[in-house]
Simulated scan of single mutants.
Amino acid sequence: MDIQALEALMHAELPMTAAWGVRVLEAGDGEARLRLDPLPVLLRPGPTLSGPAMMGLADMAMWAALLAISGGEDRSLTASLSMQFLRPAGNAAVVAHARLIKPKGRSLYGEVLITRAADGVLVAHATSGWVAVSPAGGR
């Protein structure tokens, strides 16, 4: 699945990705990189990108990595998401790099590094577990 098709699928299936302006930079081989330019609604006082926005981006990046290896047919569900905020992201674009560590089976697992786009400084680290769901919606 090419990047444009993956981004279009994400925007259609999870409208929040379109509303936030999330862009897919790369995807394949169990990894994905997404970019988020901060909208005023995503900022907290400071101003800096809010924690909920970074958690949402991390979740989106994991899903993108799963979609990339499944040809866009992934219906997995987030089971857990643990986030460590390392420093303020500021009021600038960030990039989330998701990497699947366990991409197959009923339980899936990966990590996401979120960096400032301008200088590559690490601002957050997430780990995430997912549960594979059959295409019909059952477990």
Rank of each mutant, 00 (worst) to 15 (best):
A68P: 05
P47F: 06
L122M: 09
Q84A: 15
G105L: 02
G138E: 09
A68F: 05
H97L: 03
L43R: 15
V41I: 12
K104N: 08
V131R: 10
H97R: 12
L43K: 15
M62N: 14
A5T: 07
G90Y: 05
K104M: 06
E111R: 10
V95W: 04
Q4W: 12
S76C: 07
V121S: 09
D74R: 12
L9C: 05
G56N: 07
L108K: 13
P40Q: 12
A117G: 05
S134E: 07
L14S: 11
D59F: 00
P52V: 01
A117Q: 11
A5Y: 01
A92G: 01
A96P: 15
H97S: 11
H97F: 04
S50D: 00
L25Q: 06
N91P: 13
L34D: 08
S80D: 11
A98G: 13
T17W: 11
A89L: 10
L77A: 06
S128H: 12
R116L: 01
A8S: 07
A19W: 12
G28A: 15
L39C: 06
V24I: 10
R44P: 10
P135R: 04
Y109Q: 08
L77F: 00
L9G: 03
P15K: 12
H125F: 01
P40S: 01
I114Y: 00
L6N: 01
I69A: 06
D74N: 13
M60D: 13
L49N: 02
I69C: 03
H11I: 09
G138I: 12
M62H: 08
T115S: 14
P88M: 06
G71Y: 11
G120Q: 14
A27G: 08
P38L: 04
D74H: 09
L66V: 02
M54K: 07
S82P: 01
V94S: 07
S70D: 14
L34H: 09
G30F: 09
D2P: 15
V123F: 00
M55E: 03
Q84I: 05
Y109C: 08
V24S: 07
W20D: 13
L34E: 11
T78N: 15
L77D: 00
T127P: 04
M54T: 06
A98R: 14
G72D: 06
P88Q: 02
M54G: 09
Y109D: 10
L43F: 05
A117F: 02
A18G: 00
P38Q: 13
W130I: 01
T115N: 07
L113F: 05
A12L: 09
R87Y: 00
S82M: 04
D29Q: 14
T115A: 11
A32V: 12
W20Y: 07
I69N: 04
G105R: 09
I101S: 12
P45F: 14
D74L: 04
L100M: 08
A65Q: 15
E13T: 13
A19N: 14
V131E: 03
A27P: 14
T48P: 02
T115C: 14
A27C: 05
P52W: 00
